[in-house]
């Protein structure tokens, strides 16, 4: 565990905490994409199947459980909570995510390190995570008044991805035989997806303006 990896994981954790707090405190999930949250739920379920097969560390297991539990909590709130579900932007959150899920799954069937159920599902989760934020970014574009917490949520998620790239560079330089090309390429794609958002986020922060993304 290096400092970049730890910082990346913490950003990921903070992003989820920010989202949980925002929804819970304001009793509103306005601007939050249920589709992205559901994609993350699929990502975490497929990736963390190894909770049942291998133990890496208490840290690893705890984080996996937190990510799973928090994502399902958010989905539950958005779908079923009697106050919160009313605030969901159903008409705006129209990204057809089956067009992300199917290609990612087919790609994982073809491009993987080992043709086993566990490994294909793990690879699928890597590909799907790279594009899972897209429904959220599209929804932000359609939202006129992006509240600070939603903006911060996406910014923290993007920071987590950027820090993971630094983690991979560090590991590549310090660990013999450490390489995972599929993860690296997907991770770079995933980070590129955020670049546009980062630009507008930092600009609005510097100019002390409310964040808005051009359509």
């Amino acid at each position: 565990m290096n400092i970049f990896r730890l910082a990346g994981d913490m950003m990921h954790l903070f992003s989820i905490i920010v989202l949980l707090l925002k929804i819970n405190a304001t009793r509103s999930c306005r601007g939050v994409s249920l589709k992205t949250q559901e994609l993350y739920a699929i990502v975490f379920v497929c990736r963390y199947l190894d909770l049942f097969t291998s133990f890496i560390s208490l840290y690893n297991t705890t984080m996996k459980l937190i990510f799973l539990l928090s994502t399902f909590t958010i989905i539950y709130w958005m779908r079923f909570h009697k106050v919160i579900r009313v605030t969901y932007d159903r008409e705006q959150d129209t990204f057809r995510y089956q067009f992300l899920i199917l290609p990612c799954f087919l790609l994982a069937l073809v491009l993987n390190n080992e043709f086993s159920a566990m490994e294909v599902l793990w690879t699928f989760s890597i590909y799907l995570e790279a594009v899972a934020i897209l429904p959220q970014l599209v929804l932000l574009q359609r939202t006129n008044n992006i509240d600070n917490l939603t903006g911060n949520y996406v910014f923290l998620l993007g920071s987590y991805r950027a820090l993971y790239i630094l983690n991979w560079i560090y590991r590549f330089m310090t660990e013999p035989n450490y390489r995972q090309y599929l993860v690296w390429i997907s991770g770079i794609v995933q980070t590129i997806v955020y670049i546009d958002f980062f630009y507008y986020y930092i600009r609005s922060w510097r100019n002390n303006e409310k964040l808005s993304l051009p359509a």
């Binding site: 990510f67 080992e114 086993s116 983690n167 993860v183």
Partner: peptide
């Protein structure tokens, strides 16, 4: 054969 890769990242 099976590599049984252990994925240690989240």
């Amino acid at each position: 054969g099976s590599t049984g890769a252990v994925h240690d990242e989240l």
